[in-house]
Design a binder for these strands. Structure first.
Lengths: 216, 216
DNA sequence: ATGCAGTGATTAACGGCGTTCATCAACAAT
DNA sequence: ATTGTTGATGAACGCCGTTAATCACTGCAT
């Protein structure tokens, strides 16, 4: 009818040429990061790219599927961060674990909207999340697990069950990020101090002496 | 018109007599606990109590205000739990802190819907939350703070800044509860084991020897 | 008794949401 | 020339929170 012809856009960028799926995803990411998860709606995405809302359903089964794609992006970004950090301290498990903890927290604080959909979404919303991606997401924990076991082998860490310890470390980090993002930490506490203490105490609970080991 | 006369209900219970505000709150709590926060809507509450949705606005400014009332309830319930726990170990700081940690986690697992609105709501939703209640909510942390400082005075805890330490403990506990509620803990790990380890490691990071102190 | 203000409730409506359905235009293949 | 496919659309359904206008009823002052 009076719809704009989308086949050959007059825009010279060519960004919306062919694969609309990419454009939708880019816009969704942009909207998520700019306005937060609360303001991420199918209709707003559609408005932004000047398509009808129903068009999105040609490329994504539903809103959750679109969200899963964004979560996947976030997981890959986190993976890249942790991977770079791990390589930086490849031969010092303690320092590496410390750096990994800091990297995780920094990721959360730098990408709050990503963090929310990645780790703070209620289980119901995640029910449809494909198990294959679940496994990929869990790979991020492998960095911590590896540092723990290598440290244990080197005698600088005291670890009963690496799997359990990895989870408890993750719990600490997740709690730290969550409290910071929700602005629920006592305002009289400096953010840096809080983070440093949290990381130090987390690692301290795995060093036999209770004191931080010298170098690795 | 065809509306039911609400002034004199035929129901002999008298529960909906007079203060509708109470009834709304009770129904909201019931709906929250039964169906979760996702399914808590003004219209559903209204349907449940056979009133129009707009009637709720005669007693609550908006949905957030209603939510704040529920949050307050949850905070008081948590306070009661922690208070009872603290009194049980009034003369043993270490044991008390351990019991407090377990009590907090148990509260979260036993009241997941309350926990969600109390601690997992995004900042935007909490913007209107009255500061006076914020302070009351923070009182729950005092139990942990007290155990820490008393333990430090007795020489069984090594605490630099009690305020910071309290926050990091809270972070650990919050992370632990969040991961469990979101079902994101490795399924091969037993829940009990995970909780015990998390609590033990949390406390361990504040004991000078790195080992749990004997009795208090 | 009549009029009036206040109270507690209602319906209608607005604009938002995710999603489904029927339809339509353009194109490719027969 | 007819068919089928593909990519897009508008209308509609049933939700949602919230606002505005309205109504019935009460108690009270005149």
């Amino acid at each position: 009818m009076n719809a704009v012809n989308h086949c050959m856009s007059a825009s010279p960028t060519g960004s919306s040429n062919g694969d609309l799926r990419r454009t939708i995803l880019d816009t969704a990411r942009h909207l998520l990061v700019q306005k937060g998860y609360q303001n991420l709606s199918m209709r707003k995405i559609a408005r932004e790219i000047d398509y009808s809302a129903t068009s999105i359903y040609l490329y994504f089964d539903n809103k959750d599927a679109l969200l899963h794609a964004l979560i996947h992006e976030g997981m890959m970004k986190l993976y890249a961060d942790l991977d770079a950090t791990a390589h930086q301290y490849s031969d010092a498990p303690v320092r590496r674990l410390e750096a990994l903890c800091n990297a995780f927290i920094e990721f959360g604080l730098a990408n709050p909207e990503y963090y929310e959909i990645m780790f703070q979404l209620r289980p119901e919303r995640m029910k449809r999340y494909p198990a294959e991606k679940y496994r990929q997401a869990r790979q991020n924990l492998e960095f911590f697990s590896a540092a723990l076991t290598q440290g244990a082998d080197a005698g600088v860490f005291e670890v009963e069950d690496p799997r359990v310890s990895t989870s408890t470390i993750w719990a600490s980090l997740h709690g730290t990020v969550s409290l910071l993002l929700a602005e629920r930490v006592d305002v009289r506490i400096e953010r840096e101090t809080f983070i440093d203490t949290a990381v130090r105490q987390t690692i301290r609970s795995y060093t036999p002496s209770g004191q931080p080991a010298p170098s690795g």
